[in-house]
Write a protein that binds this DNA or RNA. Structure first.
Lengths: 231, 231
DNA sequence: GCATGGCCTTGACCAAAGTCAAAACACCAT
DNA sequence: ATGGTGTTTTGACTTTGGTCAAGGCCATGC
């Protein structure tokens, strides 16, 4: 019996729908790993040696300039696929934001396996296309939205992405949630400075649109106002 | 004999490497179309009815806010694939920047065909992964670079992408080229205003880093300086 | 309880880029 | 050549968000 049998993302990750025999082969290739919050899994511009499925936790994908400016270019949640298959180098670093569990594969093993299993490649393609759509709408935010619009869009997206995605029928967006990001990381997602993020959070609180019970907790009081601020 | 036999992107587009019989089927499904400069091919948020290969010309992918702000989220050159397979709606508009020739397919026909031809899906996956990498490095530019850095990065990328990609062994980046963008469109790529773009172009000219023989022509005089400005 | 260190918030000031308006230029058709 | 149109450039001014610096908050360890 492979660990896949008890995997919580078994029905949502790209392995979903594979036959038992295929799962067994894949399972033999991969291994589980934990990544502590703050710990890196993949380095920007390094050889692409690993790919992985996220089982639990949240990780950030980042690119940096030489002088240390950082931009978060993606966020990976449970069941998401990370790493760069079919490519020599990884163009983004992957670092855990919370303690995380992942199922890692050697990239070359995975590439070989994927090429022999069109169904798996198809799932990966669907996921990659969806991620590209999401990334492009993030470009709109970075290039054309103001700081208040960025913060409002961010909180709306967080409330949608952080709802527990168990087996239960889809719940609506979360009214209250705990951000997996520090203020600096929110700034790195939105292309702002930490001070601007802080001021905008304070403004939303003073306007009665959100409550901020603690540094990481957010409660949305007036979702309509937030949506209309998001533009 | 199908029109694919004489297609100039036959060896570079996703159709490359298909067998003659497969090409014949694909050819029967698709048809050539010309798109005049400025004319749209796909609308944002519309049902995704078409996908296409670019044969000749340059097209922009854009997203817009309700109040009319526009962000160019991608640019498609000959041999690139456009449209959103395996999805209900297209999240970006596609508009020709120059007169263009494309080879269009009904999305549902294409989806069906692709699912039966893993080699084609694999090519599409490789392309989508590469596009995602490019898009993410564009996010870095939008979120964290200054106007001078954006303009310099843009000109470097243009000089690399606009080299004639015929059958000849890869030439280096173009020293002189004709932009397929108006000033406003450059602004829409970089998340700037037209005035800022214009001022930065003028500054590069005054500093002797580029020549601007006409509105669309650019000649890079001091590539080293441009690269270091790009950061 | 109190000191320590890491975040986060706030305030005063500044600079980069945006806005508005006018002039210059290029391109086109006549 | 000439006039008309739309694009680009330039200038003056404003605004947004960044920078720098100080202070507050909270968790942790002594």
């Amino acid at each position: 019996m492979s660990s896949c049998d008890t995997c919580v993302v078994r029905n949502r990750a790209i392995c979903a729908g594979l036959e038992d025999r295929e799962i067994a082969t894949l399972s033999a290739m991969g291994r589980r790993r934990t990544v502590a919050a703050g710990e890196p899994l993949i380095w920007e511009d390094d050889d692409s040696l690993l790919v992985a499925n996220v089982i639990d936790g949240v990780l950030k994908l980042t690119t940096s300039t030489e002088d240390g400016r950082e931009q978060i270019v993606g966020v990976a949640y449970p069941s998401d696929f990370i790493g760069r298959p079919f490519g020599q180098t990884s163009k983004a670093s992957v670092v855990a934001l919370t303690d995380a569990k992942v199922c890692v594969f050697s990239r070359s093993d995975f590439d070989r396996y994927a090429r022999e299993h069109p169904e798996l490649e198809h799932k990966l393609l669907e996921r990659t296309l969806a991620e590209l759509d999401r990334t492009r709408s993030w470009m709109m935010l970075l290039g054309r939205k103001t700081a208040p619009e960025k913060i409002a869009s961010f909180l709306i997206e967080m409330s949608e992405r952080l709802t527990e995605t168990g087996c239960a029928p889809t719940l609506g967006p979360a009214r209250r949630f705990s951000l997996p990001f520090s203020r600096q990381q929110v700034a790195d997602v939105l292309g702002l400075t930490i001070e601007t993020v802080s001021r905008q959070f304070t403004k939303l609180k003073n306007d009665g649109i959100v409550e901020l019970p603690s540094r990481r907790e957010v409660e949305i009081i007036n979702r309509g106002a937030l949506v209309s601020l998001a533009g």
